[in-house]
Computed example of a mutant assay.
Amino acid sequence: MELIKKYFPNLLKEQIHKLYYLKNLYAYWNTRINIISRKTFYDFYQQHVLFCLGIAKVFSFFPGSSVLDLGTGGGFPGIPLSIIFPYTKFTLVDSIQKKINVVENIVRAIYLKNAYPICIRAEKLDKKFDFVVTRGISNINIIQNWIKNKFKQKSSYKIKNGSLYLKGGEISNEIKKFPHAIEYPLNYYFHEPFFYTKKVIWISNI
């Protein structure tokens, strides 16, 4: 938690409390369902929470906007972002029911009012969103094809609707079809070695 407070010093007490309880909740559920790799759970706040909050360092969701967390798994990045942006609506989608069950329990446990878990395949989801977020579930080319019809026709604000990807390693082949993509290296914002190869990729829906 100290890392979170270090890089997000202006969080409200309520937000800090929600983030604090996440580790205990995930530890409980991880003994029942393998939501988070046991190899990385020891570093929960850096590798999972702070990594997801990298999106919040490069982009601010406006109040009232709608965000799809595609392939949320155990609730990442949707749950940490829901805490940081309490006035934005997050729909957390995954096709595996047992994972969504865990997400539903965590959302209830920390009284998240703006996170809505749904068990469904993305292509069957009949909703439109301002933005899509996802953490490394597949190749960007594949995901862009999945979500091409998931955006609202017009943005409510001057910011263009689009998608934000949390990625690690070499991604040049993934984004070469998207010349307008913007890459934000997270080691610019977070100084721990874990973030040396991590980045957020922004692709506007144009």
Rank of each mutant, 00 (worst) to 15 (best):
L81D: 04
E2H: 09
Q97S: 07
L112F: 10
E14N: 10
I203C: 11
K127I: 00
T72W: 08
K154S: 14
I201D: 11
R32C: 00
N34T: 13
D126S: 10
D94W: 06
V133L: 11
R135S: 07
L112D: 04
I36T: 08
Y42R: 10
V200T: 14
E174D: 15
G162A: 05
I120Q: 14
S37M: 06
R32G: 00
E104P: 01
G54M: 05
H191N: 08
L22V: 11
N141A: 13
P86N: 10
I147H: 07
I79Y: 11
K18R: 15
Y189V: 03
N187K: 14
V49Y: 01
C52F: 14
F129T: 14
V49Q: 02
N149V: 07
W202T: 03
C52R: 03
N24L: 09
D43Q: 14
F178V: 10
I175N: 02
D126I: 11
E192C: 01
G64S: 11
E104S: 13
S95I: 12
F194D: 04
Y157D: 03
I159P: 00
L70N: 10
P185D: 14
Y188I: 15
F195T: 00
E14T: 10
E170M: 12
F59E: 08
L22G: 04
N30T: 02
Y165P: 05
I110V: 14
T40M: 03
L25P: 02
Y196N: 15
R38D: 12
Y196H: 06
Y111S: 15
F194T: 10
G71A: 07
F8W: 11
F61D: 06
Y111C: 09
N114C: 12
M1W: 03
E14Y: 02
K6N: 12
I4Y: 10
Y42C: 03
F151I: 13
N114A: 05
I35M: 09
A115S: 12
P193K: 12
R135D: 06
W29V: 01
L112K: 01
K124I: 00
P179A: 14
T197W: 00
T88Q: 06
V93Y: 05
K148Q: 13
M1E: 06
K98A: 09
E14I: 12
G74T: 08
Q15K: 11
F194V: 12
N145V: 06
N10L: 03
S65I: 05
P185A: 12
V58G: 07
V107D: 00
I4N: 00
F85P: 01
L92N: 04
P80H: 09
C52P: 03
I159F: 08
G74L: 01
D43T: 08
V93K: 11
K6I: 00
I33R: 07
